[in-house]
Simulated assay, not measured.
Amino acid sequence: MEYYKINYYDQFKCLADKCPETCCAGWQIVIDEESLDKYKAIGGSLLEGIDLEQECFYQDREGRCAFLRKDNLCEIYKECGASYLCDTCRMYPRHVEEFEGERELTISISCPEGIRLLLAQEKPLFFTHTRDEETEFFEEFDTVLYRFLKETRKELLRLIYDSEISYSELRGQLLGAGEILQSYTDEEDLEEVEAANLWQKRSLTSDFAGDYRREVRGGWKLMKVHCEFRDPGFVQMADQSLAAPERKETKKLPEFDFYFRQLLAYFILSYYTGAAYSANPLAIVKMALFNVELIRSLWQANLECEQPEEARELLENISSSYSRELEHSWENMNALEDLVVEELYLKG
């Protein structure tokens, strides 16, 4: 088994009761079968906090887990130890993408410490590599497409981190790259394709020549129709922010250009190779771009001063809040993927 971990993966450490946004409230926490068997063996008052039919923890009226204490620490962890945490609680915010013989691991930016770690990286993101002796086989897994995606992801990251092109230019070139990748996926014998030469053979000019902010507004309206949101406060903030007049580009915060590139790289690293199952790399590129453009639009609309520390804190909060609405709901992720295929970044 090959393991690929985002470069700061092992730096993550839960903030526990010091976290400004507990992960033990606001969403259903599903319990895996092995952990549920442990809880049943203990029995007693422990089972009073568990919905055995739905296989999840009960929540109070504020959406807090039945075992989340007032000091924001976990009662199960305190009384039984880390080995009794269910898979969801043990793994979060670690995100795993599974492929035949390989695993890709990232840290979700829905976690305040996760987004802090991401934006603290001063150099381009990359994966570290380890392996063990475990083996497995996936039926009907398209190994050729997966290898093509892994190689072309390197080219996408080179494009994202190309300091010779502005962020504004990057958007169009990234879409153009996605369109090229989709055409190869649809039409070519991928075993014969050299990923490093793709951009030389075709122009990176995208078919899309429209207004990115208009796409963000339209996409957000569609998300409200097709997605379910956990936090009405975030929805209200996004509505107000996107309805407000567009602010001028910030001039005193050039380092934020790199932060938005890091966010693009995060979404590409986390989800691009998942196109091995959908055969639609353009959809993942579009989704990454839309996510970052939405985050960027909300950040600009709510930026009241250009002090770097305050501006970065605002970016962290918006990124984390949006990720909580999107990345932990497969229904929302699938809905957005459908939207970017059918509705967004079409020919201008």
Results as ranks from 00 to 15, higher is better:
M1P: 12
Y9M: 09
D10A: 09
C14Q: 08
A16N: 05
K18A: 15
T22R: 03
T22H: 00
C24F: 01
D37Y: 01
K38Q: 10
A41L: 13
S45M: 06
L46V: 13
L47S: 10
L47H: 06
L52R: 10
L52A: 03
E53S: 13
Q54S: 14
R61P: 00
C65V: 09
F67T: 01
R69Y: 00
R69C: 01
N72I: 11
E75K: 11
Y77R: 07
K78P: 01
C80R: 14
C80W: 14
S83D: 15
Y84D: 00
L85Q: 12
L85I: 00
T88G: 09
C89T: 13
C89E: 13
V96I: 15
E97W: 06
E97L: 02
L105G: 03
T106Q: 10
I107S: 02
I109Y: 09
C111S: 12
L118N: 04
P124Q: 08
L125I: 05
T128D: 06
H129E: 06
T130E: 15
D132V: 03
E133Y: 06
E134R: 13
T135D: 08
F138Y: 15
F138W: 11
D142C: 13
D142Y: 04
D142V: 07
T143L: 11
Y146H: 14
Y146T: 02
F148I: 10
T152N: 00
E155T: 07
L159D: 00
D162E: 06
S163T: 11
I165K: 07
I165Q: 04
S166D: 09
G172A: 03
Q173M: 14
Q173F: 11
I180V: 14
Y184A: 12
T185G: 09
E187F: 14
E188L: 15
D189N: 15
V193M: 10
A195G: 09
A196S: 15
A196T: 15
L198Q: 02
W199I: 15
W199Y: 15
R202L: 13
T205Q: 08
D207R: 13
G210E: 09
G210Y: 06
Y212D: 15
R213P: 04
G218F: 08
W220Q: 04
K221P: 05
L222F: 03
V225C: 06
H226Q: 04
R230S: 15
V235S: 08
V235N: 01
V235E: 04
M237A: 09
A243V: 14
A243L: 14
A243N: 11
A244H: 10
P245V: 12
T250H: 08
K251V: 12
D257W: 08
F260R: 11
R261L: 06
L264G: 07
A265Y: 01
L269I: 06
S270V: 02
Y271M: 03
G274P: 00
S278F: 03
A279P: 01
A279Q: 14
A283Q: 05
V285H: 03
A288N: 05
L289M: 14
F290L: 07
V292T: 08
E293I: 05
L294N: 04
L294M: 10
L298K: 03
Q300D: 02
Q300M: 13
A301P: 11
E304R: 11
C305M: 04
A311Q: 00
A311C: 00
E313G: 02
L315I: 01
S319Y: 02
L326N: 13
E327S: 15
W330R: 14
M333S: 13
A335N: 12
V340W: 05
V341I: 13
V341N: 05
K347A: 09
K347H: 06
